[in-house]
Design a binder for these strands. Structure first.
Lengths: 329, 329
DNA sequence: AACCATTGTGGTATCGATTCCACATTTTAG
DNA sequence: CTAAAATGTGGAATCGATACCACAATGGTT
């Protein structure tokens, strides 16, 4: 049987009100009464029910986190950062996995709403109008991580400039024919902005980009393999370098090259984005861009807590990136 | 402003009781009243507060998940499996990250208890008596994943036989001098049982094991590197193969060998356990053992739901493993 | 026609906390 | 010495749902 505030009150020979005051350090309580209550709480190991508390106070101390998958490094790092910061302030995480499925994303929003979470962190892959509309309608503090979204609080990365810098790095290494393996542009950050950064930099430097050099995959290693296959098979002139928008795509591409007896970086230079752990241990080690995902999680937590507590917060945070040069370029 | 059952009742010109009956499909409700209530619910988009509901019913439909980290593949796969199965039944996951810290593990148990989660899944690394004692005292359905634990419901892997089989596989490939990189034996599954499997198999085949061939690391790549360094530096006779208890340790070991100009598998064969994604893409691809972590998560979910609903369940489930042979041995 | 089972509905207590208010007592100020 | 302020405490309402119970209306059976 669960111990409730009622039992504590009876055992300490005070009213529930007094116990509550002790618990919350509010109002007046005599030293004597406080001692007695504290003793009983100590003895019984009583802890007030969060259920009941939040029904009354309208605060659950729970933050809902919606993510596309927990199996890749970016989201799990973000969640680690989030969790660390949130737990410092007594908040817990309610996890909702969408499995890359936009329908589930919407459903999960509703589920979190009926749970009356104090805030929602959306680790986003897409910014479809339908979703944005729904987000705006929710009157729960919300922060988006990984995508920019006008009118909504977000913590994101400087995908555009990171892509430009990486492209420029290829050029500095003497490459002029550069292929690109991207993802669908519905993912604005990864699909659209990284591609735009690449194309803008190429154009600005006056380097042509053949149609066959631009390939698209999804977020897994296999599709990087296939994309590189298409680059090599369909190009009239084979590029000397390939920019992959994620490390996983890059690693898949490398696998294909290795199977074809092509050498990295001699026959084809390669770089990715994400600074995945794996990138250090493939052969050769992969040049990539680090995005400080854990910090993004921490920032997101800080922002949403500020919003919840009506403290000042920044509508928009764009984190810095860092190029990690290894042997693949 | 939140819409409550009271508003629905008023709008449908019935009592809260009747709305509740419609909501839960219980008791008698006239067709007419039901229609009206449903219409109002539809129009308003009302959804009953889980808070209030669970205060009354003592069921939260939330399962707490305690894990050492979310950044390695084993736990994230397990959580994926858990989440998939739980969401099918309307349950959600409250995440508690211990960051490999046993103190936090205990704290988290308390936090979950106060939240009155319906069950707890513990993705375990250790089975310290202090922890076990606490677990037994909790009167919340609980299942442990990844470790065997007498008297407690668990879903685990056949670490002992997996280790024996892997050891035997080295022998079949002609190896007789086999080194071992393990972890601390407080982790019974990974530290103790895998080591015991290795040693038993070696002994049974009459193969000697030098003291220097047995090294210990922690759960990261770096420590695999260092352990292999010690194997190579301190052994009088260098072994021809190394059994690492995790893929990450194996990958670290391979990195060291590569730096030393030693060839895998010619100079040193290597295998790990875990079937991490990375294992496929290192050079050479790593021989490993697959443990079906997602299935473990699903099983754990099924078991705990059975226990919550007082349906029959298995106290103990030991999942099968599968050797994945690649080029590193 | 009287009786009982079935159907339908609303009132009220309850879950476990917080919070407001009334009231009593003590302390301080003028 | 009295009025006002500060201190201390318990009672009762409330949060948003569920669930039990009483009661009314209907219908079917002797």
């Amino acid at each position: 049987m669960l111990i409730t505030i009622k039992h504590i009150a009876k055992m300490a020979r005070v009213s529930r009100s007094t116990v509550s005051r002790v618990l919350n350090n509010s109002g007046y309580v005599s030293e004597e009464a406080r001692k007695r209550v504290e003793k009983v709480i100590e003895d019984t190991g009583y802890a007030p029910s969060e259920q009941a508390k939040s029904l009354r106070t309208k605060k659950t101390k729970v933050i809902g986190v919606i993510l596309p998958t927990i199996q890749t490094e970016t989201p799990s790092r973000i969640v680690t950062g989030l969790g660390r910061e949130l737990s410092k302030h007594g908040y817990q995480i309610l996890l909702a996995n969408t499995d890359h499925n936009i329908e589930k994303e919407m459903e999960n929003l509703d589920l979190l709403k009926v749970r009356q979470v104090d805030g929602i962190v959306l680790i986003a892959t897409n910014t479809e109008p339908e979703l944005l509309k729904k987000l705006e309608e929710m009157d729960i503090p919300l922060v988006i991580v990984g995508q920019e979204a006008d009118g909504m609080m977000h913590v994101s990365y400087d995908d555009y400039h990171a892509a430009r810098e990486l492209t420029r790095f290829f050029m500095e290494k003497g490459h002029e024919k550069i292929a690109f393996i991207g993802v669908d542009e519905t993912d604005r950050a990864v699909g659209y902005l990284r591609k735009k950064g690449f194309l803008d930099e190429m154009r600005e430097q006056g380097l042509p980009v053949e149609k066959e050099w631009i390939q698209k995959g999804i977020f897994d290693i296999e599709s990087g393999y296939e994309a590189m296959n298409r680059v090599v098979e369909t190009s009239e002139v084979r590029p000397t370098a390939t920019f992959a928008v994620t490390d996983r795509l890059a690693i898949g591409a490398m696998k294909y090259l290795k199977e074809q007896g092509l050498h990295v970086p001699a026959d084809m230079a390669i770089a990715g984005i994400g600074a995945s752990e794996m990138a250090q241990y493939v052969d050769p080690p992969l040049t990539t861009v680090d995005y400080q995902n854990e910090r993004a999680g921490e920032k997101a937590a800080q922002q949403i807590l500020a919003k919840i507590d009506s403290r000042p917060f920044q509508e928009k945070i764009i984190l810095d990136y860092r190029l990690i040069v290894r042997d693949s370029v």
